[in-house]
Design a protein around this nucleic acid. Sequence first.
DNA 1: AGCACGCCGACT
DNA 2: GTCGGCGTGCTC
Length: 839
Amino acid sequence: METLFGDLEDIKAGESALFADVILPVPIPKMFTYKIPRNLKEEIGIGFRVIVQFGKKKILTGIIGKVHQKPPSAYEAKPILDVLESHASVNPIQIRFWAWMAEYYCCHIGEVMNAALPSGLKLSSESKIQLNPTFDADTSPYPLDDREALLLQALSNKEEMSYEDCEVVLGIKSIHGIIKSLVIKEAILVFEEVKEKYSPKVESRIRFRTDLAKDKEALEAVFNEVSNKPKQEEILLKYLQEVPVYRNPELNQNGLEKKVLSDAGLSLSSLKTLIKNGILEEFKIIVSRFEDEQGHNEDIVLSPEQEQAQNTIKEAFEEKNTVLLHGITGSGKTELYIKLIQEALEGGSQVLLLLPEIALTTHIVGRLRQVFGSKMGVYHSKYSDNERVEVWNGVLSGKFSFVVGVRSSIFLPFDSLGLVIVDEEHEVSYKQFDPAPRFQARDAAIMLAWLHQAKTLLGSATPSFESFYNARLKKYGYVTLEKRFGDAQLPEFQLADILVDKKKNLLKLDFTRLMREKIQEALKNQEQVLIFQNRRGYAPYISCEECAWIPECEHCDVSLTYHQFGEEMRCHYCGFREKVPQSCRACGSSKLSAVGLGTERIEESLSLLFPEARIARMDLDTTRSKYGYQRLLEDFGSGNVDILVGTQMITKGLDFDKVTVVGIMDADRILYFPDFRAGERAFQQLTQVAGRAGRREKKGTVIIQTRRPEQQIFQQVMSGDYKNFYIQEMGERQRFFYPPFVKMLKITTRHKDFKTAEKAARYLHNLMAEIQVKKILLGPEKGLIGKIKNQFIFESIVKLDKSGNAQAQFKHELQLLIEELQVQKDFRAVRFIVDVDPY
DNA sequence: AGCACGCCGACT
DNA sequence: GTCGGCGTGCTC
């Protein structure tokens, strides 16, 4: 009726109805067409946040992707329920960016939206119940049981109750059955309440009643009045001390934070009395979650090398949109960035600086804050929802013209980006693995910059091969910065042969003699040591000495890692935990031993070898909490720790003068990785770890423990010979058709049944083979880890010709094939995952 | 992805 | 008899 009436109105008004294609945060490959109600017509446009009903129950936040006049033919469009703001939350550039991302990374635009909007901007709808007004217990034909009666009783003196309230009232968890029953008995109604998740931070403040403050005589009177009430007097005096109203009555308007009074230990009940008596009043204001800091836009003085690099970058930007800055560790890239950012901001553009997750907690942010103060927004993964929304809104309102952030900050609502900087551009953490969109933030940032007609600067001491390749092809500009800032010296490298030491019985608790000696020396000189091992836990597995049985995860095809802390076995893939077995489950022997090296075990070994040293460990397990990482860094920085053991976390952002020795426990573990990028990554990791040794005055030492010291890569890392290493590795990549010579796609097939997973993977593989595009197909093979979370995994690799539109065509046809397969009933529950440019 | 609807086993 | 398992279909 409503819609019919609406249509008639429209016809009368001589205009056709308006429809909107809405982006919804659901993994369905299309937008949904909703009708724009007449009363909202004026208030809606592309990028607006709206509320719609989706399916029978769900209420979702959507973003208007398109407005048009074409009514859907196959169904009656539902109306848009409401518009959330009077402005667009998402600008047209962002919508184009989302669409590009969905297409390039083979996912749905809804999935992009999901990743892009901080969850505080997505609505939550909560189910609530209320009394059915027509219900009368006395005349109801349905008898109520005790719990139902209790619930109705509780509801009778309230407007509404949430499911959680019900749980509290009844004292049980499973309330769904009871609610359902009451609905059937027509005693209650269930409805959805839509709530905005974001809530601004509200601060309580205190001030004199407004007219009082202006009237000195009245104030005198008040003080006389309270002179025999010391607690009240104390409060008023404190207030005057903080807010000198006598001298300047205007100040009263802004009052004083209530917290100041309570922190000063003043009586809150006396405060209440003062408020009740109309002397003081309490009011609330909305405040920012971020402290206001004044940056002093200082004049950055660059070294001659930095200045030259800056000029070269600017020249390169004249012709190229993207420039690669190849600057060795410690060459002072940060200062250069600051200079470039300042200039871009002065030109009225916005700036985005991307940092790898882990680098964000370190001093670089502090340094930037000094310069840019509160016009800089920080977007970190450990931020709460509310904080994220505030950064988002800050960009929207223009409060933040410059943002430092992790990979997801490419989604912030910039409207006039002038410069994007991707620091440590080779970092693996720029790639999102799971869930979709599986994007590479560095690549996406370049696209984003292009959409804004902005420039991108990629910075790294060990550039990714992709970027270096593009630089050599002259697609990117290329600038080097080779001198260490402040004449810090490059570290000295020494290889320690694990096997030789083992033979000579010099290997103690996995430490070679050389490594032990160097650590000892550093300790003696009160210097600090970093020990790197890219594996957390105590030991990667335990094994029965009698029959070689190894405890494995029940849900995944991996061995369980032994964690000494908590005495448990953990799966690093699904989080499964169990107690350490006391005896072998296969043969009953109690001889179980830990095999392999994790950070926990190294920490233990160190405490045995160097009992007097203060040792700390930095890995995922010790830095889970919001400030865990920062605390460890501060501890280490202030010299409270002599030896820090850690995973690759320690390769980032640590920048302490007192580190003179860096030890790499097992370089072979980095080298032998079944992946075409293993060499590239090993070079990067070794170089990055080594870069932590010796800054400023003293030359550092890097000790690399290995079983094969003759390998060439060590010489190349030691001499910093990136280019030679690159040329050699690239030869291999070209011969065997690996990126960046081809475009690579990984197609993962997952299902809980091994046979079905295999069958589906084969099926898709054969279909892909028929796509008429120049390509190489590999697989399908059982995944490196055959089962994760009870899902069996098969993988196919596709290598596509980079020229022409081969990749676009292939991706397009692949999407169609997958859709086709998903409809078949054997493959309904199979998940096909396309990963473009996989890592 | 969620969620409802619908059809078969093990239970008060 | 019913509760609830998850196979299947649908979402503007």
